[in-house]
Every structure is written in structure tokens, then in C-alpha cells.
Amino acid sequence: MRHHLILRVITKLLVGAIMLFAFYVQFHGDFSPGGGFQAGVIMAVAFILYGLVFSLHNVQKVFPPWLVHKLVALGVLFYAGTGIVSMFLGYTFLDYGALVPSHPSSGQHYGILAVELGVGITVTAVMVAIYYAFAGRPPRLSDEEW
């Protein structure tokens, strides 16, 4: 993979910007279009782009598969955990008003942020894990055949 100089330079510039954009979409989802699902996909795209241009081995050094597999489960746990916390505080499951009882709507803000974070983590990890699974197999077609 020594060729594709332009691709390599542009990718180095873009990966950071894509991740920053993913975080913007994640945490600004209350005010503008966006949220956990979109942010998760964009974050995964950053890793996939890096993997496509700089080989699977290099991206797995940055984001190792064991960590991805843990994060897949962690996101769902985070989401369900938010619900269970509100249950322990004496409200119904996933009633975020429990987080700040004196001011329910700001409790909703925190709850939505937490839940979206859980969604984002799961979606990122699942997409990256799927990419690793596909890219980790030995390809039948060599590069020249394309």
C-alpha cells in the first residue's frame, strides 16, 4: 500500500475532522438534526476510512477488536442502565425526570444525552465490528482484478 499518495494525505486530514463532526452531531443532537444513530455511523465511517486507506492492521492498532466487542455491549448496557437508574430513584423505567426531580425538563436533557451516548457507542462499535469481520477475511479477488 505504498501507492495512493493523495488518498493517504487527504485521509490523514479528514479523519480528525470526521470524528470532530461525529462528536458535534452526537452532543448537538438536541438542537439540530443529529443524534446517537447518525453520530455512531459517522464515527464508524472515520475508522473505516482509515482502515480502507491504511490497511486493517493499522486501524486495529488504534481501535483493537477486543475493545470494539466490549463497546458493542457497553452501549446497550448504558442505555438500559439509564432506565434502571430512574427506576431506583422511584420513577418508571426510562423516565428521565428522575435525574433532576426539582426541574424535570432539565432531567430530560441529561437523560436524553445519556441515552443518545449509549446509542452512539453501540452503533459505532457494531459498524466497526462488522467492517472488521468483512475485511478480516482473505479476499478471493486480488487488487488487479478490479
Binding site: F31, S32, G35, I112
Partner: peptide
Amino acid sequence: EEIDIPNVVTSILASYRGY
């Protein structure tokens, strides 16, 4: 009044339809 965030899609997604 209940959720108080501008993006209604997010508020339905995460709160009203949290399940």
C-alpha cells in the same frame, strides 16, 4: 414544556419512545 429541547425528533426518539 415537558422536554424543552428544540429538536422534536430527538425528544420523541429518546424520551417519549425510549422503549
